[in-house]
Structures are given as C-alpha cells and as structure tokens.
Write a protein that binds this DNA or RNA. Structure first.
Lengths: 340, 340
DNA sequence: GTTGGCACTCGCGGTTGCGGAGTGCCAAGT
DNA sequence: ACTTGGCACTCCGCAACCGCGAGTGCCAAC
C-alpha cells in the first residue's frame, strides 16, 4: 500500500532525525531502514509528505526534517508507548522507595524523571483542593503570639505566625485548639475554610477577635498555597545536551523555568487527564517556547487526579520513550501517595 | 607616584573589562579614564602589571584582561563596598516584608538576590544546629500509625510518619506527647536528641518499643535535614546574560547547580563569617567552575551565624556592586529571622 | 507505480587576503 | 628617571571565494 509506505517513511524520518539531529536524505533512509524500495521512490514519497506539511527541508537540497505537524502525526498515529523494562521499573520504585516526606517524594520524582528522560523535569506539588485537613496545631510563642500549624492529608504542612489581641492563656489556647480542630479536621479545605469562618461568631464576644485572626491565618494558609500552586524543576543540566541554538531554545527555556506561573500553565492542560499529553512546538500558549515540546500527565492518589508532572525539551525528542517514562513515573508516584 | 598609577591602571582595566567584556587596550584606557598620561606610558605600566601576573593578553597584540590574581588584588585592595542607595534599601525591605513562612523568606531572598545582582543566587536554609525545639506534635493517623511533627525555632517544620507496634490509645498518645515535649522543647536539637534518646528507658517496659520508634523518627528528622542542609537556587535565567562560552561556563554551572552538595561546599567557607567572602576562579574546590566566582556571606539571627547565601557568576563581574548587594540582603534576611 | 539517470542547487568547510587594533621597543624630550 | 611620539610588527576577525558533496526534482523507461 502506498499510503502505508509514506507513513513508514515519515516514521523513519522522525526516528532518524531524533537520533542524529541532522536532516535525513532519501539515500540514508533506505540504507538504515529496510523499506525495500529505491531512493527515488522514497523521494517521491517525501515530496508528497512535504506537500502535506509533515516534513520540510531547511534549505533547498538538504535532507528533510519533521515539522511540528509531522511530530504531531507521529505521536498521534505512529507510535505506542514502549513499556518500561523490568530493570527500569525496579530502578523507578527503588528510587522512590526511601522517601519519607512529601517534599522528599516530589524532590525524588523530579530527579528521577530528569534522569530517565534526559530532559528538564517539572513536578507540580499535589494540589490542595482535594486534600483534607488532618490536624491543626497551635503553639504559644509568647503571651501575644502563636504559631498556627496546618497539617493536610497529602502530608503538606503550612504554618503561620499570628499576633493575637488577647493575652494567651493555656485555657484559651486549648479552647482554640479544640474548636478549630473540631471544625476543620477531616474536611476538604474548601469546607474546612467555610466551617472555620463561622467559628468567631459562635464564641464568647470577648474572644471573637482572637478567633478571627487565628481563623484568618488558617484560611489564608489553605487558600494561599492551595491555589498558587508550587512546582519543582530539575535536570536543568540536561539543557546542555540539547545542542540546540542557545538563543532560540536554551535562553527562553531558562527564563520560563524561573517563571513558575508559566510552568503551571504548561502543565495545566495535563492536570485533569491521566493520559500522557503532548504539546508540540508552537501549539502551546507561550511563544518563547515555540521550539520546545512538553510531555505531561496528571498524577495523584486514586481519588482523582490531583496534580501534574512532565518534562519539557526540544521538539526533536524521543517521544515514545519520554512518554513512557513520564507515564511510569506518574503511576509510581501516585501509588506512593496512595500509601501515605 | 608610579606605583599608584599602576594600581589605577589595574582598576581601570578591571572596570572597563567588566563593563565591556572585551580586552582593553592602552588607547581606550586613557580615553575613558582621566589618567593624565599618554597611551605609551600606560603600556609600560601594563607590561609591568603583566610581569606581576595581574593581567594577561588573550593573544599577542590584543588588549589586556585581568587574571584571577588581578581580580583578587582588585577585590582586596582597590575596592570598598558601595553602599546601597535609599531606593535599593526600600526595594529590599519591601520585597522581603510580606513573607509569612520560612520557605517564603528563603524563596524571596533568592529572587531578590538574583534580581539585584543579575547573577545566579544561592540561599542555604538556616542551619538547624543552633535552633531549638519549639514544639512536638503527634497526630494519630490510624490505630497503628502516627504523624510526628517537629517544629523548630527557626520556623522550620519536619514531619515523619511512624508505624508503632502498640495500639495507639488517646492516653498513650497524650503521654507520648507530654513526655517528648517535656524532654525536648526549648533545647537545641543536639541536646534534644540526647534527651529524647533516654526516654524509652524511663517508661513502662511494654511501651518502650513504641517510644523507641517515635523517638527514632524525631531524632532522624532532627539530624537528617539538619546536617544534610538544603539550598535553593534562583536566577538561572541570568546565565543567559553571561555571554560566556557555553561549554566553559554555562554547562558546568548548570551541572553544579543541580548538585546541591557542591553548592553547599561553595557556600561553606562563608557560613562562619559575617564578612562577605569572595572566591575567584580556580581558588575554589570545584574545578569545573574554575572560570566563575562566588560571592557569599553568612547570615542568620543575632545569636550567631546560622547559614549562608551568595551568588555565583563569571569571574568578570561587578564585584563592588555584587558584594554590597549580597551583604545587604544577608543583613535584611537576618533581621527578618530575628523577628520571627 | 517504481526505478535509474542526470542536471542542478546550495550549504559547509577550508583558504586567502586585507584592515585595524594593539603591542614592544627605541630614541628623543623633560 | 620618567614620559612620550613614532614605527614596525603581529595577529585576530571578517568577508569573500571556491570546490565538494549530499541531496533534490524531473524525466524517460520499465
């Protein structure tokens, strides 16, 4: 079938270009892949593929390279994730095994992902939206200041120092502790914030203001880092391996990596899906990264996708391998979070 | 005085080279600075400076650039920190004002430092060694697991999940909580760990193992992140401004920035001193960074230097400005920590 | 629809040839 | 004892040039 061979040619071009990083010509193609046809035939196919906008030549009389559209086609139709080898699986679980902390899990995931894909890895902290309040602890610092500690089911801990208008006695502190915990523990942060918000009205008038400031701090701790989510980046050293134009790729990339808001936007699309999402070149929302791709997926405990992780690298990358690695890491991290 | 002029020439060379990033010749020098002598005279001085190893020429018949030794001389003898302008001071305190978290303080400091110096900024988390235990909280997760939360005077919070061999009752948990707090609160982590270590022997035999595992987790939380200190990096995008050779400077830098152990070593020398320390080029312990300099200083609450922060950049940098910025940020951060 | 042949294109690497900035040295001046 | 102008020399950087070779498109034959 002619159509079939054209696609085989596209696949071969993508694979060779990814491997060698050089435009690939018709002759080299038939040598490296068993297409069973002559270079001339391949040339005809290439002309057709170019017509369709799937490949392009950097200059007349050079080999072809895939266009963004070509990669898109390749990813969507010509590839299936290659499963991880047993050794790789062992490496992954081994790497994530020893984590005792939420911070630690995230940290290790980034490192792992960067190492596995040889790209720049990005991991978003588990979103708080779905997490519940595990415990609230209030510690007196002086007679007028206390430390409010908020412990969430994801293992995240937030803390705020609060100045209170009333002198802090043990009794008052105990009462605060009991009431805030009663109102919030076990609730999702949305409901917890609401329940806490009503507390000040339910207590003796002279303590209303005190309750109000403490509650305000807790609610702020919930919403603050809850919506303004954090990301961690790793494997920046892999930028050095890109060999791509510094100005075009590396510089904008470094700038983007500093802007966590941008990263969140890049990952954002993938958060909701447990599929691996691929954004190729200029498909994304952020122009400076027009010559890079993002491979990302949602992850999280079994009660629904909580957050996302992924990698960003040059459009010319090993999509099947990268996608498989991203998926594998996401799954393992999800399991770990489930256990905790 | 001839000696004086030679030093003026060295200073001029450093300043011009830092500004233009190009080898500076005798003619350009007399034009840009009022040296009051002819180019020929400057050439003689330059020859002398080269003799002493303070400057060098990249190739015959090019201008001169300072050597590491030249920079050293410049930093040690020819420069004094230029004080921050009022506007800069305001910017600094404004930037750090709104921080409510230890994480937040560190995060903001990195950003601030990176922005101020236009270099890559590194901030080490306040060391735990001198900090004291503020509170220990134990929360039951199930009948056999509890979450141990350790709150330190620096505002740092560590947490560990512990599997206990005994069924957890409220009584047991309360007892654990009271005893661990009694043993540890107010102590430096060294003493706290020691005091906690004796706890298991002082309780009813059937609870000894339970105490032991909880204490082990707490002690581990103290020592773990206490010795293996954490650092935060920011302003990587400034690498792009270096314009230096990618292979020589940027690549090893990216690699070093990933290796937090290396960064700690780089900052390490400065931790103990409240002076601003400058390490120029190959003076440092890490060969790949032979063409970069580190400007760092200790910072921390008034009870002694706790930690360190600084920047790393190309040897060709504005030392006076950078040193001033590093010192200013360190001071402000120290004040903030003192208040908390 | 496939294939071999052929003329053509064009980027890349190496070479060559200035121009200019900068130097070192020397002899003269203060 | 320094400083200075002059001068010959060096060598980098840049631009132009050239030839090679990979690769293409097209066509005529199968």
């Amino acid at each position: 079938m002619v159509e079939d061979r054209k696609l085989a040619v596209l696949r071969a071009i993508v694979e060779d270009y990814v491997a060698t990083q050089e435009p690939v010509g018709s002759k080299a193609l038939v040598e490296r892949h068993q297409l069973g046809v002559s270079p001339a035939t391949v040339r005809n196919d290439m002309a057709a593929l170019e017509e369709e906008g799937l490949i392009a030549q950097p200059h007349t009389s050079a080999g072809r390279i895939p266009t963004d559209k070509g990669y898109r086609f390749f990813v969507d139709r010509l590839t299936s994730l290659k499963p991880m080898s047993a050794a790789e699986k062992r490496a992954i679980s081994g790497f994530l095994e020893g984590a005792h902390d939420l911070d630690d899990v995230v940290q290790r995931s980034v490192r792992l992902l960067a190492q596995l894909t040889q790209q720049v890895a990005i991991v978003q902290y588990p979103t708080l939206a779905r997490s519940t309040v595990r415990h609230i602890e209030l510690v007196a610092l002086s007679t007028s200041r206390l430390l409010a500690v908020l412990i969430l089911s994801t293992g995240r801990v937030e803390q705020r120092v609060v100045e209170v208008p009333l002198e802090l006695t043990d009794d008052l502190l105990g009462e605060l502790r009991i009431r805030t915990n009663a109102a919030a523990v076990g609730e999702r942060i949305g409901e917890a914030a609401a329940a806490l918000g009503e507390l000040p009205d339910q207590v003796a008038p002279e303590t209303t203001r005190t309750y109000a400031v403490v509650v305000a701090a807790l609610v702020e701790a919930m919403s603050d880092h809850g919506s303004d989510e954090r990301v961690v980046v790793g494997g920046t050293a892999n930028l050095a391996r890109f060999g791509d134009s510094f100005e075009m790729t590396i510089k904008p990339m470094l700038e983007a990596l500093e802007e966590h808001v941008v990263l969140l936007k890049l990952l954002g699309e993938a958060t909701s899906s447990s599929q691996v999402t691929v954004r190729i070149g200029a498909e994304g929302p952020y122009e400076p990264l027009a010559s890079t791709s993002v491979v990302a997926t949602g992850y999280g405990a079994s009660d629904g996708a909580l957050s996302s992780l992924g990698i960003v690298g040059p459009t010319r990358m090993d999509y099947p391998g990268t996608m498989a690695a991203v998926r594998a890491v996401a799954r393992y991290v999800s399991t770990i979070l489930d256990e905790a």
